[in-house]
């Protein structure tokens, strides 16, 4: 390669390397803040401020969803396998909200350490399959999303 081109190639590489280092350092400084939500274990351990808007997320514990008979009130438990947090919500849940599926909740932690939700979003997984295949998997024992399946609910 011609020496002047070699020099230009070095310039190009330096631009890429230095910009990557710069962005990498910024992301390292922000690492925790780039997470969208807190897992239940962090909420329980008291790392999350109370009475301010935050997001929590985890798997909806099977059998924990209790709906009111009169209005849209609903409460359920989210878990990450380490800790559980009770969630209170009043409103319409997304279609994909279900037990054993992941959810992201926008709300405030009250003094009892419960999450008073103002918005509940369903987090679906990356698996796609026709209903017949899903039915077959259900019989084989794998019904829920993979991330929520590995959790030991019976603690």
């Amino acid at each position: 390669m011609h020496p002047i081109r070699k020099q230009r190639l070095m310039m190009v590489l330096l631009i890429v390397i230095f910009s990557s280092i710069a962005i990498g350092l910024i992301m390292f400084a922000l690492r925790e803040n780039l997470n969208l939500f807190y897992p239940p274990s962090k909420i329980v351990s008291g790392e999350v401020p109370h009475n301010v808007k935050i997001r929590g997320g985890g798997c909806v514990k099977p059998g924990s969803v209790q709906r009111s008979e009169h209005n849209l009130d609903v409460n359920f438990v989210i878990t990450d396998g380490v800790a559980d947090v009770k969630v209170f919500y009043s409103g319409i849940l997304p279609d994909l909200f279900a037990e054993g599926e992941a959810a992201v909740i926008n709300g405030k932690i009250n003094d009892k350490g419960e999450l008073e939700a103002s918005e509940v979003l369903a987090k679906h997984d990356e698996n796609y399959m026709p209903p017949e295949v899903a039915e077959g998997m259900k019989q084989a024992g794998g019904e829920h999303q993979k991330t929520c399946e590995t959790i030991n609910y019976a603690r």
Partner: peptide, 8 residues
């Protein structure tokens, strides 16, 4: 229709 929001 899936998550319940247009944007996050």
């Amino acid at each position: 229709p899936t998550w319940g929001t247009w944007w996050i």
